[in-house]
């Protein structure tokens, strides 16, 4: 059963707006959104919420697009797209609805793991670029990965709930 065209358009617009909001939130210096100077990775959270009930392909595409957008907001090298796309595909592959039941907890757990993964991707790219000393990159990676994973997984359920409501009738792409 395909939903009506109008319905699909509204869905898409809502999805786009939520993605833009996630990007906007990156800039916002809100006190509760940082732990030891490390802020919440909103695009990652959005991406996980998006991918959790979707097929790997659209999830990967969304990850790529989101990563490029975040590149634009910071610097393009190293790219964020790689880590986000990887995280999105992996999340989609988990097929959560089949194996895991607890929404809140599982979203937080997945976010935790994926935050570590995406930060690692960036750290690896930095290492390959060779502009910074390795020791420095990886010591920074430790704190960033842990901090980002903690704070992002804490905030993930709050993003997940409204988004799940918005996507409550997911388009059966599979």
């Amino acid at each position: 059963m395909q939903p009506s065209l109008l319905r699909q358009c509204i869905n898409a617009i809502g999805t786009l707006v939520s993605a833009v909001c996630a990007l906007l939130a990156l800039f916002a210096p809100v006190p509760g959104w940082a732990i030891a100077g490390i802020g919440v990775d909103w695009p990652l959270i959005w991406l996980i919420c998006f991918s959790i009930r979707r097929a790997p392909l659209p999830a990967g595409i969304a990850g790529l697009a989101m990563g490029w957008a975040q590149d634009g907001l910071t610097i393009a090298r190293p790219t964020h797209a790689l880590g986000l796309a990887l995280a999105a595909v992996l999340t989609a592959r988990l097929e959560k609805q089949r194996f895991i039941q607890e929404d809140f907890i599982s979203v937080a757990l997945i976010t935790f793991a994926m935050a570590v993964l995406s930060e690692t991707c960036i750290a690896v790219q930095y290492s390959l670029m060779g502009v910074l000393p390795l020791a420095e990159i990886w010591s920074h990676h430790q704190s960033v990965a842990l901090g980002s994973a903690l704070i992002s997984s804490l905030w993930a359920p709050i993003v997940y709930m409204p988004l799940r409501w918005w996507w409550r009738e997911p388009v059966p792409l599979k």
Partner: peptide, 21 residues
């Protein structure tokens, strides 16, 4: 569309998002 948007944002340096913010 999503890919195009993403790429455009990357090329434009995220100007749209920054201004929106």
């Amino acid at each position: 569309l999503a890919l195009g948007l993403g790429w455009w944002m990357r090329q434009s340096g995220g100007a749209l998002i920054a201004d929106l913010f």
